[in-house]
Amino acid sequence: MKYSRVYFEDVQVGDEIPSLVKGPIQQIQLTRYAGASGDFNPIHQDDEFAKAAGMGGVFGHGMLTMGFVAQAVTDWVGAGRVRRIGVRFTGLVRLKDVITCRGRILGKSSKDDVNLIDLEIWAENQKGEKIVTGKATVAVPSREP
């Protein structure tokens, strides 16, 4: 269920979170993300500029893909629960790509009455190539009061 509440006791190391599929990526989304984020690098908008820069054409903002991955985490755990999220950008997102965001539980810990879950997170394109890889830490409630 979307925006469901995740309880610490119900999460097991090795579990995967529900995957999130985004795209196909369209130019209008890159333009919209540029406006919303303030990143107007023409490499994401202007195909000729991107080719002249040696990038073979327009590609998506890494931060847009990171936003997708963060959404996969918050769709699962709920908004406002992410304590840390970090990624490495390992591949380019091209127009028409379909991006699947995934995550897997790496560990659980409790400290000072806060229950933390560590995840590995990644996004891959329709060819199975990893576009971003990283980790996230989320704080979740316990069933025990």
């Binding site: 690098n41 023409p42 490499i43 500029f49 002249a52 820069a53 903002h61 890494g62 931060m63 990171m66 908004a79 406002g80 992410v82 304590r83 840390r84 999220i85 970090g86 990624v87 490495r88 950008f89 990283g134």
Partner: peptide
């Protein structure tokens, strides 16, 4: 020049919403 740069890594730590 901006045409030479790529985003390599990004991390956020958030202490409250």
């Amino acid at each position: 020049d901006i045409s030479r740069v790529l985003h390599g890594e990004q991390e956020f730590e958030q202490f409250r919403p």
